[in-house]
Design a protein around this nucleic acid. Structure first.
Lengths: 144, 144
DNA sequence: GACAGCATGTTACTGTATAACATCACATTG
DNA sequence: CAATGTGATGTTATACAGTAACATGCTGTC
């Protein structure tokens, strides 16, 4: 799926959920798409400023929040960053793998594998919500 | 284990690992211990300033980083905070459960339950390091 | 055209974290 | 004992992250 296709699908996705991928939101999403892997809010802000002159933090954060809410992006807490989710259509719980060495990220689905954790939590009288886990390790390339 | 016992054990633990729980580090650890649950760096900083007058962010961050490195604290990325680990002796991988409603945290061990995730990661050509997962959900009290 | 409701712009601020350099304390050793 | 090296701490300044609060603009509906 190329960038344009993605944007189109994203637009449709938003409409189906009863809200709009406005020009600004689309532009922000586009900026995020341009980067490989994790993008920071202030990076997006800088990019946005290049493209349209003035822009303040709230502008970017609001757009990013919206995109996260729609499932188009995932927030990666531990990195204060965001990544594109390329399977926003389906209900999923994912695990975001961050390589400690090169910083590359990938997302894998873990709906099933989470059950073990869910059981442990349940045993501690705790009910897990939907998760987007972030775990660290070594990617194929950096593993040597 | 009360606070004093913990501090003593912590001191021993550091020595065994070839480093020192200095007065400052001990004081910071004590300040963290005083709080239930998650503590923020700037909260600790404020407390520290009350006790010893001047103190700047790096002082606190260095101490906290040290304590995390020694396994005495866990960093909770998603909350920009820290919690005490009360079983720093043993090699463990834990899951930190954060209640979405009341914010209380608890730590549970998940060495075994992580294997499922490890397998999924391996299938994606990724080798997981040791983890301290943070997951959100509802605690016993807030679950209703 | 008036209004409601949402999106965006703007200002100012709070909170989180670190770089870079200065100084101190203490152990080692020549 | 003085010289030196090393790690801990102090200090200043700044970078980076996020939000509150209010102003303005846009669009659809009655």
């Amino acid at each position: 799926m190329n960038s344009n296709q993605y944007l189109q699908a994203a637009e449709l996705h938003c409409e189906q959920r009863g809200c709009k991928l406005t020009a600004l939101r689309k532009q922000v999403l586009e900026l995020v798409l341009r980067h490989e892997g994790v993008v920071k809010a202030y990076q997006v802000l800088a990019d946005l400023q290049k493209e349209r002159g003035a822009a303040a933090p709230p502008t970017v954060y609001r757009a990013l929040d919206f995109l996260v809410e729609q499932g188009l992006l995932h927030r990666v807490d531990a990195l204060n960053g965001f990544i594109v989710c390329d399977h926003f259509e389906c209900q999923h719980e994912s695990m975001i793998l961050v390589c400690e060495t090169c910083g590359k990220v990938q997302e894998v689905d873990v709906m099933a594998a989470l059950n073990g954790l869910r059981d442990v939590a349940q045993a501690a009288d705790f009910t897990l919500s939907h998760q987007n886990l972030m775990l660290t390790g070594l990617c194929k390339v950096c593993r040597v």
